[in-house]
Every structure is written in structure tokens, then in C-alpha cells.
Simulated assay, not measured.
Amino acid sequence: MPDLSFFLPGSGWAASGAGAMLEINLDAIAANYRLLNTRTDNAICAAVVKADAYGLGAHRVAPILEQAGANTFFVAHLEEGVRLRSYIAPTAHIFVLHGPMPGTQAEFTRHDLLPVLNSMEQVAGWHAHAGKTGNPLPAALQVDTGMSRFGLSDADVATLEANPDLLDGIDTKLVMSHLACADTPTNPANAMQRDHLRAMAARLPAAPLALSASSGIFLGPDYHFDLVRPGAALYGLAPNDDASNPLRPTVRLGARIVQRRTINAGDGVGYGLTWRAAGPRRIATLGIGYADGFLRHGADGEGCAWLGDYRLPILGRISMDSTTIDVSDVPENVLAQATHVDMIGPRRSVDDVARSAGTIGYEVLTALGSRFHRAYLTQVA
């Protein structure tokens, strides 16, 4: 008999009327942070909570990470940093990866946020702002070691080395970069970027160094430097495909069974009638669709739901608010008791869903929408 106790009576699921429920295990997130922290030697283990903690709710996730030992956080945008400041201790450090947009420098100091300066324009803006305040202001410098995305170029670093006054008033707290291929441990680009960071940092003011995010941590101590900044790994995503995932899953997504019916040979299912029954089948319609962030691509191939140990293939196209599955293999007495099926759960991870959709777990997590009833599990007071 499958476990039908997922949606606990106290969760509010039954009364919510929501078509699906997202269970977020805060204790698992904290355990993942502690595991990552043990792997980073003497490096500070920060926590990335951008994109609303990868869609799981920074207002609940960040305090749990803080209780687990995190004191340094990274977000992408100024607005995320402002919100995060109200969730965590005033002594916590918050870095904003995209740095200060023109005219926003005062907001950073008002909310005690640390900008990551990615360009000469941002360096000049922060330099000017520090001059107005009359005090040195903290910031990180990001350098581009080969990803061609964010960061100061070699030419920019040469300019700063030749003109150190351009950094007057900037208290460099961190020199950082980002690995492009960390999820492929054997890729030679990893070592090239590591060495490039060392060379670029030697031409800048002395400061702690940071290179690795989640996957980079698993490349070993030579990539840890002084600070690591895991994001996806906190939320249970596999750091690479070369080894089993040592991280705990942190989410479970269950969809409500809204309707069941029996169809006959030749009957089509869903928009475009792209799937047709070869014989009589029992099917169920679920209250979850692409408007909830459950990805449409690839769902009618490898896509499935689970009820205990019963695999339930997705039939046809996912609709905006609904998904149809084949429940023919489930005994009727079991199905009669079921109120939901797992879309993400013990038998199907976030990474599994991503592979079926031809994407990555990051996209699956951050796409999960706001219509779910959410339940946060924790034993931490």
C-alpha cells in the first residue's frame, strides 16, 4: 500500500482547495548546508538565496540557514537584498551579485548591503559614492576568468593596477569569479579559471578569494579558496552526474486527483489528441499544469507521476491547469483511497524531472509557481 499520509491534516491542504501542494523540508536544507560546510575546509561557506531561495521562499529558508551556521548570503538584485535584510540578523553579510545600478548606491549603504562590482562603471560609481560619504565602503570585485559573463576583464584589472587611485574609498572584502564548467569535473576549463583567478587577484588589493558555487565545492580543496557560495546544492540538486548525489532532497510536490475516467481504444487525450489509447485505459486528471511551473516540454515522453511504487505515465500535453496520467496499473482499492500523486518525491527527483524536460534542476525549482499550497517542515524551533 503506498504512503498516503504525505498531506498531513495540519498542513491545510484539504481546506485550501489548491490543485497541488509543495512540501519544503527546511531541516533537509539545513542538513545540506552543514554537509557542504564540512567539505570546505577552512573556507567560509556562504549561502545563495537569490530568486527567492530558488523558488522555495527566502523568508523561511534564510533564517534556517542562519541557524545552521551561515553568516554570509548572496542574492542577485538589490531588491532581493533589501528583503533579505529583514529576515536575518543585522550582523549577517549580504552580497548583491549584480552590483549597484546607476543611482542605487545609497540604497546599498542604507540597508548594509555589499555590492559585487562587475565593471569599471560600477567601480567608478561606488568610488564616487564613497567619496560623498567620506568613508571607505565595502564591496567585492568580480573578475572574468573565462566565462565571459560578469566581471572585470584582464584589461580592466590592468587599468586598476596602473591607477590604484580608482579604488580609493573601496574596501575590497572579496575578489571573486565563477566557474563555467564545474559540473564537469574533468573539464580543463576549471583549472584554467582557477589559475586565472590567482593571477588576476595578484594585481588587485589583497582580499579573500572566492571561485566555487555548488558544483565547484566538489572539485576539491584547490577550488575552495577563502569562501564558497553554494546555491543549488542547498536545495538538493546533484552537483554533477559523475557520482551519486550526497545531498538530501528538499521538496516534494503532490498533485490532487481531480477526476478519474475510463477511456476506450482509439480515444485521444489532451490538446491536439497527441496520445491515443491502444485499448481500454483508466486515466486521472490532476490539478497541476504549466501555469504552476510544471514544465510542459518532454512530459508526454518520459514524464510521469508516482503513487507509491506505481509509475503513472503522463498522457498527452500538459495543459495550463491540468495534467492527465495513466492509472491503469494501480489496483482500484488503492486508487480509491488516493487523493494525490507525487510529481516530485521519493521516486522522482527534481533532477529526474529536469532530464525528462531537457533542462536542469535549477529551472525546475525556480519555475515552481505560487498557486501551490505550501507546507514547511522543520523540527527547529
Score class of each variant (00 low, 15 high):
residue 139 A to T: 10
residue 141 L to K: 05
residue 141 L to V: 02
residue 141 L to M: 00
residue 143 V to S: 04
residue 144 D to A: 02
residue 144 D to V: 10
residue 144 D to N: 11
residue 145 T to Q: 05
residue 145 T to G: 07
residue 146 G to H: 06
residue 147 M to N: 04
residue 147 M to W: 04
residue 150 F to G: 01
residue 150 F to C: 03
residue 151 G to Y: 01
residue 151 G to N: 01
residue 153 S to R: 05
residue 153 S to V: 05
residue 153 S to H: 04
residue 155 A to N: 02
residue 156 D to Q: 00
residue 158 A to G: 00
residue 158 A to H: 10
residue 158 A to W: 03
residue 159 T to D: 15
residue 161 E to Y: 12
residue 162 A to G: 13
residue 162 A to Q: 15
residue 163 N to P: 08
residue 163 N to A: 13
residue 165 D to S: 15
residue 165 D to T: 06
residue 165 D to G: 00
residue 165 D to R: 11
residue 167 L to C: 15
residue 168 D to G: 10
residue 171 D to R: 13
residue 171 D to W: 02
residue 172 T to W: 07
residue 172 T to R: 10
residue 172 T to C: 12
residue 174 L to V: 11
residue 174 L to W: 07
residue 175 V to K: 12
residue 175 V to Y: 12
residue 176 M to S: 03
residue 176 M to V: 11
residue 177 S to A: 13
residue 177 S to I: 08
residue 178 H to G: 03
residue 180 A to T: 14
residue 180 A to D: 15
residue 181 C to D: 04
residue 182 A to M: 12
residue 182 A to L: 12
residue 182 A to C: 09
residue 183 D to P: 06
residue 183 D to N: 12
residue 184 T to M: 14
residue 184 T to R: 15
residue 185 P to N: 07
residue 185 P to Q: 07
residue 186 T to C: 06
residue 186 T to Y: 06
residue 191 A to T: 15
residue 192 M to P: 00
residue 192 M to I: 15
residue 193 Q to A: 04
residue 193 Q to I: 08
residue 194 R to F: 14
residue 195 D to W: 11
residue 196 H to V: 07
residue 196 H to P: 10
residue 198 R to K: 13
residue 199 A to S: 12
residue 201 A to K: 08
residue 203 R to I: 07
residue 203 R to W: 06
residue 204 L to A: 07
residue 204 L to G: 06
residue 204 L to H: 12
residue 206 A to T: 15
residue 207 A to G: 08
residue 208 P to Q: 10
residue 208 P to M: 12
residue 213 A to K: 09
residue 213 A to R: 09
residue 214 S to Q: 02
residue 214 S to H: 01
residue 214 S to D: 05
residue 215 S to L: 11
residue 215 S to R: 10
residue 215 S to E: 11
residue 216 G to W: 03
residue 216 G to V: 10
residue 219 L to P: 09
residue 219 L to M: 04
residue 219 L to I: 14
residue 221 P to L: 00
residue 223 Y to A: 05
residue 223 Y to M: 13
residue 223 Y to V: 04
residue 224 H to E: 00
residue 224 H to T: 13
residue 224 H to G: 06
residue 224 H to M: 06
residue 225 F to C: 05
residue 226 D to A: 01
residue 226 D to H: 08
residue 228 V to P: 01
residue 229 R to P: 00
residue 230 P to T: 09
residue 230 P to M: 02
residue 233 A to F: 08
residue 233 A to Q: 01
residue 233 A to Y: 02
residue 233 A to G: 15
residue 234 L to S: 04
residue 234 L to F: 14
residue 238 A to Y: 08
residue 238 A to N: 11
residue 238 A to C: 09
residue 238 A to V: 01
residue 239 P to Y: 09
residue 239 P to A: 05
residue 240 N to V: 03
residue 240 N to K: 00
residue 240 N to I: 03
residue 242 D to S: 13
residue 242 D to I: 08
residue 244 S to P: 00
residue 244 S to W: 09
residue 244 S to E: 12
residue 245 N to E: 13
residue 246 P to H: 13
residue 246 P to C: 09
residue 246 P to Y: 11
residue 246 P to I: 02
residue 246 P to K: 05
residue 248 R to V: 09
